[in-house]
């Protein structure tokens, strides 16, 4: 069984030992275990398709930065081993690779303003040569990070309110 206290969420927003919040977290152990399992599925899947583990970490860092979570951005950026991809972790950077650039444009929009996304945003990825399976992988990466970053932010508020 995963030690949930070592999970990303609970190392990032750690309830005080013995506190009511810690008890509520432990009551929901399965949720925190599955959240960490989802991070593994999204960041380091056995079958990464067209999104390498390095690219996924660079995008995750960029998404965290877009969410105003610099500590999470730094944590994900540290997982990028390919120096050529490291710059993509920073908001506002671009890529000469048309497929990667399409993924950056999509990621910036899906993370910050999903309500404005229209069918043409998906078509743009397809036109750049991104496969439908990779479009789903990219959407899941953005979507999972949107969840995890808010869980961390919300839990942090609860922990701070109890202090």
């Amino acid at each position: 069984m995963t030690d949930i206290m070592n999970s990303t969420v609970l190392t990032s927003a750690r309830p005080k030992p013995g506190s009511q919040i810690e008890a509520e977290v432990l009551n929901r152990r399965d949720i925190f275990e599955k959240t960490q399992a989802a991070e593994i599925a999204v960041l380091t899947p056995a079958d990464p398709g067209g999104l390498s583990h390095d690219l996924r970490h660079a995008l995750a860092a960029r998404i965290a930065a877009l969410h105003g979570e610099p500590d999470q951005a730094a944590r994900y950026a540290a997982g990028v081993t390919d120096a050529a991809l490291s710059p993509l972790a920073s908001v506002g950077t671009t890529s000469d690779d048309a497929q990667v650039q399409a993924m950056l444009t999509f990621t910036d929009a899906v993370s910050t303003n999903p309500r404005e996304i229209i069918a043409e945003d998906v078509t743009a990825l397809q036109s750049a040569g991104v496969s439908d399976a990779d479009i789903v992988r990219l959407a899941e990466l953005n979507a999972f990070l949107a969840y995890q970053l808010r869980l961390i932010a919300g839990l942090r508020l609860l922990v701070e309110a109890a202090e």
Binding site: P114, R115, A139, E140, N142, A143, R150, G154
Partner: peptide, 13 residues
């Protein structure tokens, strides 16, 4: 938080 995830699949794809 979960629907910040779900919305980015359902509304995007």
């Amino acid at each position: 938080a979960l629907f910040s995830w779900a919305n980015r699949l359902m509304h995007i794809l």
